[in-house]
């Protein structure tokens, strides 16, 4: 093959890689929260909402789930620029990611709500809880607990998806790798290193979310149900 591997760029570009890692993580964390809120509201809307609400939520979920994230980001970033509302790349990335993961979360949460036995709802009514109280205090915690593993997988997929944001010049990890590649012409090595970093990030995120679950769902921990 006659190709000599050269990872000497690592020391020079380590600070840039670090910055990329932080931006990737930051983007992920900042998008998870609004994404989860949007998704949960959508799921509630699709189950309990009036017909127009249900219809709007369904259109949103299907439109997002059947088009690629890249197109959504381009639409938002370049489209809003033409309208005169220039978003910086980071803001556009976060908005797009939140809207995107919101649609997937909506489907997951809907499954969670639908899996709650009817008796829970009836018991809540017997306790004279109002509709919103019932959803917030009785159904939501149980729904999250049930679908938590699916949510974790979805959030990890979202973290991997942030890698496309370098396309709108948000300098996250993959964007940094691209810069290294274009300065050093060591594309293969740069992306190998990036791949390893992503593997480490995925493991870290998974462990962190597992820790969150251990703290948040004591009942499940007592029952020994795997998370």
């Amino acid at each position: 093959m006659g190709y000599e591997f050269d990872f000497s760029f690592l020391s020079e570009y380590a600070p840039d890689l670090w910055r990329g890692v932080w931006l990737t993580l930051w983007m992920t964390v900042v998008s998870i929260v609004p994404g989860f809120v949007i998704g949960t509201l959508c799921a509630i809307g699709r189950i309990y909402g009036s017909t127009p609400v249900r219809r709007v939520a369904t259109v949103y979920v299907e439109a997002i789930r059947n088009t690629p994230l890249v197109i959504q980001v381009f639409w938002l970033f370049f489209g809003l620029a033409v309208l005169g509302a220039r978003l910086d790349a980071f803001t556009a990335a976060i908005i797009a990611l939140s809207i995107n993961v919101g649609a997937y979360t909506a489907e997951i949460m809907r499954a969670g709500f639908e899996s709650i036995p009817r008796g829970q709802r009836e018991a809540a009514s017997c306790l004279a809880l109002s509709g919103p109280q019932r959803v917030l205090y009785v159904e939501l915690p149980q729904a999250v607990e049930r679908v938590y593993p699916a949510l974790v997988s979805q959030f990890i997929l979202m973290m991997l998806a942030t890698s496309i944001m370098s396309q709108i010049s948000a300098e996250e990890l993959t964007g940094v790798a691209y810069q290294i590649q274009s300065f050093t012409f060591r594309g293969f090595e740069a992306y190998l290193v990036t791949a390893v970093i992503y593997l480490a990030l995925v493991t870290t995120l998974r462990l962190t979310l597992h820790g969150v679950a251990l703290a948040a769902f004591p009942r499940r921990r007592r029952l020994g149900t795997p998370l």
Partner: peptide, 23 residues
């Protein structure tokens, strides 16, 4: 685990550059 832990764009780049350095 390996494939699912690496973003697809990065896999694309690795294959792309890997093929080119392989000649």
């Amino acid at each position: 685990q390996l494939i699912q832990g690496i973003p697809l764009p990065v896999i694309m780049f690795v294959v792309y550059f890997g093929l080119s350095i392989g000649g």
